[in-house]
């Protein structure tokens, strides 16, 4: 599906720039060796300095919804599509789309695997997820 572009130069830009290279980059704290999400001023676990580190891209479907009516005019033709939260093996929860899956096949707790799709800004791609069985 199409993806409205995140803003270039935002705090999260490295995440979307890495996605273009096929890497799932998340904020990580060297002091306590934990990932966190979303990106924020400092590590929420220990207030340490955050850097970026690659995650494996595997996890489980936490919850989802099927959007029958897109509000973004550019996504009208993509509906219905699936928005979701996925719990990554690294212990963080990402908001995303589940792609290439029928609504009837979805169930919370199923395994998911990261993929990458371009946004409407060619420099910034977005991580999306597919069910593991189909990845």
């Amino acid at each position: 599906m199409k993806h409205p572009a995140p803003r270039a130069g935002s705090t999260s830009a490295p995440h979307f720039e890495a996605a273009k290279q096929g890497r799932l980059l998340l904020p990580h704290c060297a002091a306590c060796a934990k990932f966190h999400w979303p990106p924020q001023a400092a590590c929420p676990h220990c207030d340490g300095a955050a850097d970026w580190r690659e995650a494996k891209g595997t996890g489980t479907l936490a919850t989802y919804s099927v959007v029958y009516r897109a509000v973004n005019p550019e996504l009208k033709d993509d509906a219905p599509y699936v928005i979701a939260f996925v719990d990554l093996d690294e212990g963080v929860r990402l908001f995303t789309n589940i792609v290439d899956a029928k609504a009837a096949d979805l169930k919370s707790g199923l395994g998911v695997q990261c993929r990458f799709e371009p946004s409407m800004d060619a420099e910034l791609w977005v991580p999306v997820f597919a069910l593991t069985a189909q990845a």
């Binding site: 993806h3 409205p4 572009a5 803003r7 979303p38 977005v126």
Partner: peptide
């Protein structure tokens, strides 16, 4: 409402959520 309301401009908007769909993820959880 969806664009300037509770939807994060970088981390959520690229995935096309409507406001009802955000509440719907909570409902399913």
């Amino acid at each position: 409402l969806a664009e300037a309301g509770p939807i994060h401009p970088d981390l959520e908007r690229p995935y096309g959520p409507s406001v009802p769909s955000m509440f719907a993820t909570v409902a399913r959880a």
